[in-house]
């Protein structure tokens, strides 16, 4: 008669213990320094935030280490400027010499945590014909989006329709994830960014 009660109490205690354990996972601010020391001081790759790709993979930005990245923030339902920014990036891709093109990544990160699901991003990739070889499309939680925007100096806010007013900047990261060049504006010739990518790529 008493045994089941005891078992119940025990299992309740283990359940409690389990929840305590998950609660003890430290937030990103406060994890030990050792886990961070691989990256340079100015690398964006040291961010702890986790992002989801259009293939549904959960990744940190650090997975992009190893080749320069051309980065912009966007949202898939954007009607005005984002399509132009993506076109600018595509022009850069085309303008790169063959050996650089295979060694440069193109990264699009969405402002729209709500509507830009992995599926929505996948549709966008197909629509804009962004190759799997070079292009990474990511979505993240609002807090992480805000932080990344702060890091690359992008200003944005959500408007009453759920769209985003935002600044338009294309950022170039070197293979270590450090910002080496930023180009504000739209509809610009690819020359300057191509030159920058040539200069930072080791032949």
């Amino acid at each position: 008669m008493k045994l089941p009660l005891l078992l119940l109490a025990l299992s309740a205690a283990t359940a409690l213990g389990a929840t305590n354990e998950t609660a003890e996972v430290l937030p990103p601010c406060c994890r030990p320094l050792a886990a961070q020391t691989n990256y340079t001081d100015k690398s964006l790759f040291q961010l702890d935030s986790v992002w989801t790709s259009d293939a549904g993979r959960r990744v940190k930005l650090g997975v992009l280490r190893g080749r320069p990245q051309v980065v912009a923030m966007f949202f898939a339902s954007c009607q005005f400027t984002c399509p132009l920014t993506v076109s600018d990036m595509q022009r850069i891709e085309v303008a790169l010499p063959e050996n650089l093109r295979t060694n440069t990544g193109f990264l699009l990160i969405s402002f729209d945590s709500e509507r830009d699901t992995p599926t929505a991003l996948k549709v966008y990739r197909a629509k804009r014909e962004l190759s799997n070889q070079n292009w990474t499309l990511l979505r993240g939680e609002p807090d992480n989006v805000r932080e990344l925007a702060a890091l690359i100096g992008v200003i944005f806010r959500k408007d009453a329709n759920g769209d985003f007013a935002h600044s338009n900047v294309i950022t170039v990261l070197n293979a270590e994830g450090e910002i080496v060049y930023q180009q504000p504006g739209l509809n610009l010739p690819p020359d300057e960014i191509v030159a920058k990518l040539k200069s930072i790529s080791i032949p």
Binding site: F80, I155, D159, D163, S167, N168, V169, P184, G185, L186
Partner: peptide, 9 residues
């Protein structure tokens, strides 16, 4: 001019 280009919306 720059900022006008910079901002969507």
């Amino acid at each position: 001019g720059l900022d006008r280009q910079l901002f969507c919306g």
